[in-house]
Each structure stands twice: as structure tokens, then as C-alpha cells.
Design a protein around this nucleic acid. Structure first.
Lengths: 273, 273
DNA sequence: ATTGACTTTAACCTTAGGGGAAGGTATACA
DNA sequence: TGTATACCTTCCCCTAAGGTTAAAGTCAAT
């Protein structure tokens, strides 16, 4: 018969933990004094405790362990599930590591501008889109409000809330002139296509790296470069057309310095090793 | 101006999280209505939120992130510490994985007897020890009480509590006869060495794999075999003499089936990779 | 004016115990 | 027999990062 303190010393485990296991019904003492409430353990509990600790070292939760103790045949199932969990968490930790190192190497370099890449999901969305080859970037300032905006109003379609307006560039490379661009605006419902506007539903993107760019559009190239480097460094690959989402611009901010744009590149973790 | 719901949709983050960050002083809304308490965000908060999410994706805690936001020069330090953390947790997850797989392969085999290996620390201890070459295992039943026990009583040394009595085998291999064994018993203080008893302090062992063996001693070999296999499978190496700790035996249990012995092998994670 | 969508605070929940307080108990010692 | 000390009990609050209701107040449209 050991008191809880002795038993804890023998097993290098705290009394608090033993009480906790008692409370959870995981490991009951051999005998509890009826009047004092003192817990008394014997070597009979040693085996059970070893079993609990083994399973805990494998990363199982106490409730899983309890189920296993009640139904030992389930251990296979639990361990196989846990194996997958552990594999996933190794991947997750490795991704963190890459991200940290990519950041550290970036601030070590002379690069003064730091971007803050985040991974998020892009929800399914219905868009009104207009694809065209335009002469240069300046054309947008006229094209979007005067052509696209008016046509949308004409066919009576409403912008979604929150507003979501983005460009997709269909040229494989960066161009200054004759840019093949698709301007998309999220709307509440599909309408009949017109000569100018095409409607389509764009599927949810499970993961996209998103980086915010503040300032005029002529520096967007740097942001793209950063994004693609980040994707390479962090072992991702591009799985869809990059979007350039307009948050603040000439329509609501006077100073170019306040313009805000988000680049969104659909990605997927590379599966190679 | 966005309400909290809008802002949460834009950023694919819950309102609860935004409120939480507000509470923590991590991300304050641009403006809070004095009378209704409504929070209103603007695009000014987007940058800050991106920064927070970036750091969170690297695994930093919100309190670390808060410190970084208050003192951006500290980011290097935090990230370097976090890098070490992440490396450690990758190692820990890999160890779990090995342990799970070792267990799974073991129950898949025909091995009916499952041991439950646990890793624990062995504390520093003062022992009275007696080293001898004995003819066979049976000798212990006489040797320990009648020679060692009596000598200990003669020199007046007290056993430690909890009791801790173990053997160390000094033969490199398993032997049935002429076994070079050191019998150790934890005591409360050092005494003068005698012809029979030698006193020494044994250092703490940071990690030992411990497995319980129930039953008579002639099956201990299997337990050892299991232990050494486990060590190999789980990428550990032996860094000290194995101990055989006697918990229940002939002195307190009549039936051999109830005898309980713990094998403790000092180990260290292998550093290769 | 009413409805429905949205917001507020507040309180409790999650893991695996840690820390401490208030009070009862066991045992050695005087 | 009394007491000092070590040990035990239950009870309550705490962790991190929010999730999940609930009650009540607010906004915008009908």
C-alpha cells in the first residue's frame, strides 16, 4: 500500500496527475479510506499506469486512452488515426519552419520592404467578368467605371457584399502593353451574358497566398516577385490564376500612397519530399 | 468603414477572433460607437491584421505577437527562438510516430505479450552495493536477505523510501551461470565501505526506457529483448548499464505469477539523421 | 411599426493538469 | 499527551485561443 505521494515518487508523476486520472476514472486507487478519503495505491496499479503513460507518450488524449482501456480491441483504430494526425502535424510544423526561415532570410537581406504573406481560403463567388486586351494599365481608370460599371447597371446586377473586384492576367508573362486581362466583379446572381459581360461561378479556392500591397500600381511587380519566391521557398506550387484584388484605389483614396491591393495566388503544398 | 461582420468576411476570420484581438489590444477597431459599442474597422486595419496572421501562421503565440508589434526589432529574436521550438516539436512528433509504428508492428505480429515501455527519468540516488560473481539466479534468494540485508543492518544504514532495489549485470552478454552482478539498494546516506558493501552516489539519468515484467524471472530475457528492439526501432541508443528493479517478489508475493520487475535502460535519442 | 440580420456583453466550455488555500490526518519527537 | 511537520483532502481559479450559446440592444428595409 502506497500513499499517493509514494506512488507518485515511484512513478515520477505528480500527485495532481494521479488525482486527475482518478477523477476521470482512468486509474482508480486500490483502496480509498472511507473516513479520511486518503487514496492508497498498490503495485496492481503499476501496470495500468504504465499502459496509460505509454499511450500518452504516443500523443493520445486522455479520453482516447480511456476508451482504449475500456475496449482494448480499439487500440489499432486509435493508433492508426493518431498516426495520420502525427503525420499531419509534422507537415504543419515543417511548413512553419519554412515560413520562419523564409522570413528570417528575407530580413537578413537588404530587402527593406517586408510583405506579410498569409494563407487563406477564397470562397466560391459569382462574377461578372470582362476580358479584353488593353493597351496599358491606365486604361482601367476609364474602362472599369465607364464601360463595365455602366453595363452592369444596365443589366441590373448588384455587387456582392463585401465588394470583391479583381483582375486576372492571362498573359504568361509580365507585359507593359497589350495586356490580356479579365476584370471580375463579385455579384449576387448570374445574369444573361452580354457582348461585354460574361457571368460565371468561380469555385472555392482551398488555399491562396495573399499579400497586401500598399501604394501605386507600378510597384506591384515587386509584390508578385515576392509572392512567387515565397511559394518556391515554402514548398508550395501554383494551382490557379493569380488574382489582383482592389481594395483601396482612386475611387476612394486621393493619394496613390494609400492605395491598397491584394495579390491572391491559389496554391497547394507540394507533395514531393 | 466595415462592421465587424464585414471585416471578418473580408479576411476569412471569425468575429470572435476579432473581438478577442481587440480585447488583447492586438488589433483595435478604427472607431467604436460610444453609445452602441459597435466596432467599426477600415482598411487601415488590414495591414496590421495581415501581419498578425503571418506571425500566427509561423506558430507564435498572441502574447509574443503583441510584443513584436510593440517592438518590431524583437522579431528576429522571437523567430529564432520559435525556430528552435519548431525543430524540437518536429523531433517530438517523429518520436511519437516511431513509437506508434513500433507498437502497431508489434501487435500485428504474433507476439501475444505486450509490454508497455515508458520513458522516465531516474533520480539521483545513494546506493549500498555488493558486486559478486554468482553461480546462478537462485543464489539471490539467499544472498540478498542473509548476506546483504544483514550487513546493512550491521552498519546501520536505512533503506530509502520509496524502496529501490536493483541489479546491474556486468557481463556483456546473457549468462546462465557465473553471473557478474552488482546488487544495489537505495539508502538514505553514505557510510564507510565494508568488505561486503560499497557505497556510491549514482547520478540522475535523464531518460530511461522502463518496462514492467510480470511473472517469474526466467522470462525476463524476453523483456530485455523487447527493450533493446524498442530502443533500436525508436532511434534511441543505450547510454548506461541496464537496471533490473525489483518491485514485487518472493518477499511479499507467494505466487511467482505476481512477481513484478522493472527493467530500466538509460537511453538517449540518436542524433544522426 | 415590425421583421430579420446584425451587434453587444457575459458566462461557460475545451486540455491536462498547475497553484494555492483551508482544513483534516499521520507520525515522530519531547 | 501535546505538538511540530509532513502529508492528505476538497475546492476554486488559472492556462491559449478562441467556440458556443443566451439575453438584450441596434440597423436597415419593408
Amino acid at each position: 500500500m502506497f500513499t499517493i505521494g509514494m506512488f507518485s515518487k515511484i512513478n515520477r508523476i505528480t500527485t495532481k496527475t494521479l488525482r486527475h486520472y482518478d477523477e476521470l476514472g482512468l486509474l482508480k486507487p486500490e483502496y480509498i479510506d472511507e473516513f479520511t478519503g486518503y487514496r492508497y495505491y498498490t503495485t496492481n496499479q503499476l501496470m495500468q499506469l504504465h499502459r496509460i503513460i505509454t499511450l500518452k507518450q504516443m500523443g493520445l488524449s486522455l479520453s482516447d486512452i480511456k476508451e482504449i482501456l475500456n475496449n482494448p480491441r480499439a487500440i489499432d483504430l486509435f493508433l492508426k488515426l493518431k498516426e495520420q494526425d502525427v503525420l499531419k502535424s509534422i507537415e504543419a510544423e515543417k511548413a512553419k519552419l519554412l515560413q520562419i526561415r523564409s522570413y528570417l532570410s528575407c530580413i537578413k537581406g537588404e530587402n527593406p520592404k517586408m510583405y506579410t504573406p498569409i494563407i487563406k481560403e477564397l470562397p466560391e463567388v459569382i462574377v461578372a467578368s470582362m476580358r479584353q486586351v488593353v493597351e496599358g494599365y491606365d486604361v482601367f481608370f476609364d474602362l472599369v467605371p465607364n464601360v463595365m460599371g455602366k453595363e452592369m447597371k444596365r443589366v441590373g446586377c448588384e455587387c456582392a457584399v463585401p465588394e470583391y473586384c479583381f483582375n486576372i492576367y492571362h498573359d504568361g508573362e509580365y507585359k507593359e502593353k497589350d495586356i490580356d486581362v479579365e476584370i471580375c466583379e463579385a455579384v449576387t446572381e448570374m445574369k444573361e451574358d452580354t457582348n461585354i459581360l460574361k457571368f460565371k461561378k468561380i469555385d472555392k479556392v482551398p488555399a491562396a497566398i495573399c499579400i497586401l500591397h500598399k501604394g501605386s500600381y507600378n510597384k506591384l511587380g515587386e509584390a508578385y516577385a515576392f509572392a512567387f519566391n515565397w511559394i518556391k521557398d515554402n514548398n508550395y506550387e501554383v494551382v490557379g490564376d493569380p488574382r489582383e484584388s482592389f481594395i483601396d484605389g482612386i475611387w476612394n483614396k486621393e493619394s496613390e500612397e494609400d492605395w491598397l491591393t491584394e495579390i491572391q495566388v491559389p496554391i497547394r503544398m507540394k507533395v514531393n519530399e
